[in-house]
């Protein structure tokens, strides 16, 4: 596997904590590294922090110097940057969500396939040992058909964003900009689509948006009869757990438990299944994902998660936003003048 010449596009928090520690330390994956950001001050800080001499303020300055790029910029820039990279026959590793819009995501997938470049979204949860095992159980039918599922995930927002882009986005097409449902949902809805192998129908969607990005959302999906309720929050810790009810049992676990889950067969006692001694760290995930990406390029094959794989989840989230209604919220201070 030959190491690639990489660019990291965007020098915000995700670049700092996820991409750059791996790309600067794994010479087997990255032979030369460029960082690109429109803010010179930010470039300088990151360049100094990671000892990266190759800096650029625009993508066009590096296009002929790289083989691939990791896009770590705000999500509403993913489409344009990916388009430029694919047009220049560069492989793309894109932070999730691939794009907020299904039409844009579909176009990118088609462009990448036509240009014969690898397009990988950073949907890292599919790699978790516990979630892979659940996929296997659903597929082999050992607990029967899944009947319903639930997922609740949230916590007080603490992402060390540099730009605050989630909170400063402008509305698109007359709709509020996306918030927590796109941010966390890009992982969760993708995982559920993968597990149940279906393109879901949106039964209901509620958000607490009044024109800005929502901080609380509920999405009810139907995966060919598997009714699934998903809750998201930026406010405070939720139960951070999931549960799937099957014809002959139940599986449950913690949203962040990548190495264990609990299974209950029929009326037997619940059993904790441990698959590995521990979960992976953030940077171990990054190393795994980038190695997979580089390996796919070297081998000329599709990676474990491709751009096409995440289209159903982007479709479901987009549709959720399209039909979103408000919660009944009697606690709002609407006493006026």
């Amino acid at each position: 596997m030959a190491a690639l010449r990489f660019a990291v596009i965007g020098c915000g928090a995700i670049a700092e904590s996820y991409y750059l520690p791996v790309l600067t330390s794994r010479r087997d994956l990255c032979s030369e590294l460029w960082i690109v950001d429109p803010e010179p001050a930010r470039l300088e800080t990151v360049s100094r922090q990671f000892k990266i001499p190759n800096v650029a303020t625009s993508l066009s300055q590096v296009l002929d110097k790289i083989d691939a790029a990791a896009i770590a910029s705000p999500h509403d820039t993913h489409f344009g940057i990916s388009q430029t990279l694919i047009a220049a026959a560069k492989h793309v590793f894109c932070e999730k969500p691939l794009t907020p819009s299904v039409s844009e995501a579909t176009e990118l997938v088609a462009l990448a396939e036509k240009a014969n470049v690898i397009l990988v979204p950073n949907n890292l949860r599919r790699y978790a040992a516990s979630f892979r095992e659940i996929k296997r159980i659903i597929s082999d039918g050992s607990l029967g058909r899944p009947l319903s599922a639930s997922w609740a995930e949230g916590g007080k927002y603490s992402w060390p964003t540099k730009s605050g882009f989630y909170f400063t986005q402008k509305s698109r097409n007359g709709r509020p900009p996306p918030g927590v449902m796109l941010d966390i949902g890009a992982h969760v809805v993708d995982l559920l689509c993968w597990w149940f192998g279906e393109e879901p129908i949106v039964l209901d969607c509620r958000t607490d948006s009044f024109g800005g990005p929502e901080a609380r959302a509920t999405l009810i999906l139907d995966f060919a009869g598997v009714r699934t309720g998903i809750d998201f929050s930026y406010y405070q810790k939720m139960s951070n757990s999931y549960s799937i009810r099957f014809e002959r049992g139940r599986i449950s676990g913690g949203c962040y438990d990548e190495h264990r889950y609990t299974v209950q067969q029929e009326s037997a006692r619940p059993k904790l299944v441990k698959l590995a001694p521990r979960g992976m760290t953030y940077q171990e995930h990054a190393a795994q994902m980038i190695a997979e990406f580089v390996g796919a390029i070297a081998g000329g094959k599709q990676p474990f998660v491709s751009g096409r794989d995440v289209l159903p989840s982007i479709q479901a989230i987009s549709e959720g936003y399209r039909c979103a209604k408000s919660y009944d919220a009697p606690w709002l201070p609407r006493f006026g003048k």
């Binding site: 948006s209 800005g212 709002l332 006493f335 003048k337």
Partner: peptide, 25 residues
């Protein structure tokens, strides 16, 4: 915001405290 009598400027020290108020225009 709901009272519509004043224009509001919401002052925050860091982005982590933005989610609740950013959902308002």
């Amino acid at each position: 915001h709901f009272g519509e009598e004043y224009r509001v400027l919401a002052g925050i020290a860091r982005w982590s405290s933005a989610p609740r108020i950013a959902r308002l225009p």
